[in-house]
């Protein structure tokens, strides 16, 4: 048992989290959703992220959950992301049970809260599936094409570029804290002192990270100026060239049509089986 606890804790270290993040961001995989036009995907996502809030029939919600699970599986999502989501979900369920127990709530209250959790689950899975299968570059271009300001869409793709630098530097800063700091002595119950210590340095390490990034920005801003970024903001031709590769194909129409038919079928079935 002790050995198992150790290996599990050893697995959750900065090194492995870093690798998982890099895999999520840069593991180029061809997925079902990734082959679609990013603009269509964004529109599809914005419909399906809002719709669950207006649906009350549990049967329909379960029917929505099914394709979301399939999409998430097809997107080869990193286990790290799923674990984080699972932790969130389980703690939410625990809190619902405790809350309803303490306040003497009936089963009806729990049922309503469980429905809410189900909606959140659907939206979370949709977000994970869409954003982990969409290349950030395509996302950035889609946003530009949908009329977002160029500074904003560039910010998305620049974030993608700087992510590895930030992760690496953050890791080294954590090292600096560890090499000069002092870890708690005695191994307390469930190592909570150690966990608290690590949690503390993983938060304060952001301060030097932010300052270092601010310092680096000067070169980046000058380079953007010299390389014509400001010029491209007012140049229509540059934007047209950049977005020329985005095309809506038959695949996108099929995807939208299937989605619509599935939704219609879902509502029809739900009403047929559980009439109001």
């Amino acid at each position: 048992m002790e050995a198992m606890k150790r290996t599990l804790l050893d697995k959750i270290n900065v090194e492995n989290v870093k690798l998982e993040l890099m895999r999520t961001a840069f593991g180029r995989q061809s997925t079902l959703l990734g082959r679609l036009d990013p603009r269509i995907l964004i529109i599809w996502y914005s419909i399906f992220a809002v719709m669950p809030w207006f649906i009350h029939e549990e049967a329909v919600l379960f029917g929505l959950l099914l394709p979301m699970i399939l999409f998430t599986l097809s997107s080869k999502v990193s286990p790290l992301v799923l674990i984080i989501m699972a932790i969130g979900l389980l703690s939410e369920l625990a809190y619902i049970l405790i809350a309803s127990f303490l306040f003497g709530g009936s089963m009806e209250g729990i049922w309503a809260l469980l429905t809410l959790t189900l909606k959140i689950l659907i939206i979370s899975l949709a977000s994970i599936a869409v954003f982990s299968s969409m290349d950030p570059e395509k996302l950035s271009d889609a946003l530009l094409s949908l009329g977002m300001p160029a500074q904003f869409s560039f910010g998305v793709s620049y974030g993608y570029r700087t992510l590895p630098i930030l992760i690496e530097e953050y890791h080294n800063l954590i090292h600096s804290y560890r090499l000069r700091g002092r870890a708690p002595e005695a191994d307390s119950w469930l190592r909570w002192r150690s966990l608290l210590y690590m949690a503390k340095i993983s938060v304060i390490a952001f301060y030097p990270l932010i300052l270092n990034t601010a310092k680096r920005t000067r070169t980046t801003v000058e380079a953007l100026e010299v390389r014509g970024f400001t010029y491209s903001l007012v140049n229509k031709e540059a934007k047209r060239l950049k977005l020329a590769y985005l095309r809506v194909s038959w695949r996108d129409y099929v995807f939208l049509a299937v989605s619509a038919i599935y939704m219609a079928a879902l509502f029809w079935t739900a009403h047929a089986i559980f009439p109001l």
Partner: peptide, 12 residues
């Protein structure tokens, strides 16, 4: 080409 050329690279 800047001295800290790494910050000049803005694309993935």
């Amino acid at each position: 080409v800047f001295q800290d050329f790494e910050n000049q690279l803005v694309r993935p």
